[in-house]
Write a protein that binds this DNA or RNA. Structure first.
Length: 822
RNA sequence: GCCGCCGUGGCGGAAUUGGUUUACGCAGAGGACUUAAAAUCCUCGGCUCGAAAGGGCUUGUGGGUUCAAAUCCCACCGGCGGCACCA
């Protein structure tokens, strides 16, 4: 047991009772929303890394509170989803029961760390009152045309037995379990996030986020400015020539005269077959083989290109040449139109393909206007050749002209794809949709493209997740809920016939897109939050979380906020004004993981050292945005530091009359400035080091003036909230603790800029750039005075005489340095 | 392959953004207190030559710009992260 645990428990109780950390959500004058990504709870408990993040942002929040803001720092649990469910599966517990256990443990730990949480507003995503509104959002998405079902090749995790969104696949592995992802052709629910691609990209400009995260989002959205062109088709058996044509997207229309073949993806070819194209056996065989290979390791970039001639030809719109259409899996179906114009001379992939299948390579862009025997594709801009009337033109400049000439147009393409939202799992909010085969057939659905599908009427929400015994994922492409007939059989809201309820649940990432709205909840309202409170508190002023959410939660939340904006329920479209990513805590140079057995459980440390020591230690390790190695030896230094702070008490001056010496006063004011600046920049490590320097100074004093002690406690308060409160209350001799006399509601000390100014400084004297003396000098001395001072120094004299020369040039940096160049 | 970030003592990390490299802390050495140890307190501490005064070298490596480079530029080496046949 730590020496501090008693006072820590005491203050935690008193703070809670007096509501020190509960701002008035309706009336607050200077609202400041201080948010951390809420944790996925698992029974293993809170990770030391999360503790560092949580206490880290709490330091910031406490600082802001002392600066006079009404700080709102809510907390909750992101308890739905595969993280919790996979853990339940592993230990053979039921997630619904397990949730109650983990919840208790998590809240215990979250209390233990001493954060200024607004506990009244806590929430859990698996609470029916919460997911009622997650379902409401889904239903709204459907009503606004932003949710739809589509059959397509999707990511399938064979271990989690569910489909996943593209964002949840990381280098072909499942974000949750690390299994290799397979492709399956399934009908699934999607959110039309691609409709927001441009806006998601644009408004990145106006938010204060790390550039690296913005870049990651930009890359993910993958905007590409190019051109679309049509290639008429001939030679399709049983079809009139030029009746059909093929659309392609290119960024290089300047190379159009060099197009010697067209390639379509196996998926597109398959769709042609489904539409009635009679392809040869060889072509059919290739397509089915390629489709199987898709998504497996063999189909990697390094593999040799494969393909087959389709038997069909296309007409190059620029020179009317007849060119063959090939099928190959080097063309992606999911980007552009699933078909490309191949320019082997100027694209390395096309070049490789042409070499392998002996196809024509025609150079049309040349560095010098001459023809070459190309060994590799020439991909730079240059002068056009073999391009009829465009010969001699600059390739860059000719892009738009050639496009117009060939009847094409400008086109912007995005890499981003729609958000696959359905999951064949149990532990999530059931998707609030009903399919009616009776009135659906009559095509009277509210949305023509989704005939027969109806959202659950708002008055019938939530669709409660039933308790079912066997909640294990089935791997059949259906959720375990599909087996529960009582659940799935339902009356059609339109025609009242028996209909089928959707049994998939929604992605956990939908739960977390809007939780920070729900902290500002309103009971019995028509929207999931209180409009006035949201107007007051959102967007979030400071958000901290992991960079691993760059293109997951952070992208999805932005999308949902933009949708809310369009539905006119909020008046802003970026949810997080300022975001900072915390660093990763490692142990013995390696990422903490169960398999390595190097997970650090915070409980023992908090018990042994106390929350204040741990908070300080975690903050002192490195700047919050940097990671660090967790080494327990370092804790003892912090432990000593706090013990010495405690001892300051016995040094306190008898009366308030005593003052500090000029030098100590200066250090005190410099510290006020530095600690404040450092907290603002999340450089807690240097703030703490400054407090240590200040303490070292105080310890040298015969007695400590009251005002210095007060200021010191306030500066330390965000880091060590319990001990500072204890010392503060003792010092102030408050008999009864009231909210407003808490140290955490005192105002942050102000520094006097006059007192910070130094009247002397260390003059660095260099000769030819080498330091030869460091002299005490008066602030503001002139170059002449500095030189005189330097010349008076023995070592300088000696050095100058040995060089036997007088300075050719002197460099003088006021109040800093004098460099004599001989 | 492309894009982004990083490299400072035995260790975590500082360095006012071009001006004393190594603040603060850990670990270490010496000393005080103690019968002894722990705790606490004081002192030292990049490497190297020197008894000292003082000098030389040093921020992954090599070069450049500059009176002056951890900081700016170029090349290379090593590490981390993102994207990856994106037409």
């Amino acid at each position: 047991m730590s020496a501090y645990s008693k006072i820590e428990k005491k203050w935690q109780k008193l703070w809670l009772r007096s509501g020190v950390y509960e701002p008035d959500l309706k009336k607050a004058k200077k609202p400041f929303y201080n948010l951390m990504m809420f944790p996925y709870p698992s029974a293993e408990g809170l990770h030391i890394g999360s503790v560092r993040t949580f206490t880290g942002i709490d330091i910031y929040g406490r600082f802001k509170r002392m600066e006079g803001y009404d700080v709102f720092e809510p907390i909750g649990l992101d308890g739905f989803g595969m993280h919790s469910e996979n853990y339940a599966l592993r230990i053979g517990a039921h997630p619904m029961r397990l949730a109650k256990v983990t919840e208790k443990n998590f809240y215990r730990q979250l209390e233990m760390i001493g954060n200024g949480f607004a506990w009244k507003e806590k929430l859990e995503t698996y609470d029916t009152e919460y997911y009622k509104w997650t379902q409401w959002i889904f239903a709204q998405m459907f009503k606004k045309g932003l949710a739809y079902r589509k059959r397509s090749p999707v990511n399938w995790c064979p271990s989690c037995k569910t489909v996943l969104a593209d964002e949840q696949v990381q280098s072909e592995e499942c974000e949750r379990c690390g299994s290799k992802i397979e492709k399956k052709d399934l009908e699934q629910w999607f959110f039309r996030i691609t409709d927001y691609a441009e806006r998601l990209l644009e408004s990145l400009e106006k938010i204060d986020w790390p550039e690296s995260i913005k870049t990651a989002q930009r890359n993910w959205i993958g905007r590409s400015e190019g051109y679309s062109l049509k290639f008429p088709l001939i030679g399709i058996p049983g079809q009139e020539d030029r009746k059909h044509s093929i659309d392609i997207f290119t960024t290089r229309p300047d190379t159009l005269f060099g197009v010697t073949f067209v390639v379509v993806s196996p998926e597109l070819a398959k769709r042609w077959i489904n539409a009635g194209w009679h392809a040869s056996d060889e072509v059919q065989k290739y397509i089915s083989k390629a489709l199987v290979l898709r998504g497996s390791k063999e189909a990697s970039v390094e593999a040799e290109k494969t393909g087959v001639f389709s038997g069909i030809y296309a007409i190059n719109p620029a020179n009317k040449e007849k060119i063959p259409v090939w099928v190959s899996d080097y063309v992606l179906d999911t980007y552009g139109t699933g078909a490309i114009m191949a320019v082997p001379a100027h694209d390395s992939r096309d070049f490789e393909f042409a070499k392998k299948f002996n196809l024509t390579i025609r150079e049309v862009v040349s560095p010098d206007g001459r023809d070459h025997d190309l060994r590799v594709a020439f991909t730079d801009p240059g002068v056009l050749i073999n391009s009829a009337r465009f010969n001699g033109a600059n390739s860059e400049a000719a892009k738009i002209e050639i496009t117009k000439f060939a009847g094409g147009d400008r086109k912007i393409n995005y890499r981003l794809r729609d958000w696959l939202i359905s999951r064949q799992r149990y532990w999530g909010p059931p998707i609030p949709m009903i399919f009616c085969g009776v009135c659906g057939k009559s095509r009277k659905g509210e949305r023509k493209d989704m005939a027969g599908w109806y959202p659950i009427p708002e008055k019938d929400l939530p669709v409660k997740l039933p308790f079912i015994k066997d909640y294990r994922p089935r791997g059949t492409g259906e959720s375990p809920l599909a087996k529960d007939k009582k659940f799935s059989k339902v009356r059609c809201p339109k025609c009242k016939s028996w209909a089928r309820r959707e049994t998939d649940v929604s992605d956990t990432f939908l739960d977390s897109t809007w939780y920070f709205f729900r902290y500002l909840d309103a009971k019995n309202k028509r929207i999931p939050f209180d409009k006035l409170k949201v107007k007051k508190w959102l967007p979030v002023d400071m958000y901290i979380g992991g960079a691993e959410h760059s293109v997951l939660h952070l992208l999805y939340s932005r999308f949902v906020a933009k949708a809310f904006y369009d539905w006119k329920i909020i008046n802003f479209n970026e949810p997080f004004k300022k975001f900072r990513a915390h660093g990763l805590i490692i142990k013995d140079g390696a990422k903490m993981s169960k398999s390595k057995g190097n997970i650090v459980n915070p409980d023992g440390y908090f018990k042994d050292f106390g929350a204040d020591v741990m908070r300080l230690y975690l903050a002192f390790m490195a700047p919050l945005e940097q990671g660090g190695d967790f080494r327990d030896q370092g804790i003892s230094g912090i432990d000593r530091f706090l013990a010495r702070v405690k001892k300051l008490n016995s040094k306190l001056a008898r009366t308030s009359k005593e003052g500090l010496s000029e030098n100590s006063e200066k250090l005190l004011h410099k510290s006020i400035k530095k600690v404040g600046d450092d907290i603002e920049n999340l450089h807690y490590n240097t703030a703490i080091s400054q407090l240590m320097i200040l303490l070292n100074e105080f310890e040298k004093l015969p007695s400590l003036p009251w005002h210095a002690f007060e200021i010191f406690l306030k500066l330390l308060a965000p880091f060590a909230p319990h001990l500072t409160e204890e010392l503060w209350q003792n010092f102030k001799k408050n008999k009864i603790f009231k909210k407003q006399n808490s140290i955490h509601l005192q105002s942050w000390p102000k520094f006097d800029s006059k007192k910070i100014k130094d009247e002397s400084f260390k003059l660095i004297v260099q000769i030819n750039g080498r330091v030869r003396a460091v002299l005490d000098a008066t602030t503001g001395i002139s170059e002449k005075e500095a030189i005189a001072l330097a010349m008076d120094n023995e070592n300088i004299k000696k050095n100058l005489s040995s060089l036997a020369g007088s300075p050719k040039k002197t460099i003088f940096v006021p109040d800093k340095l004098l460099n004599l160049v001989i």
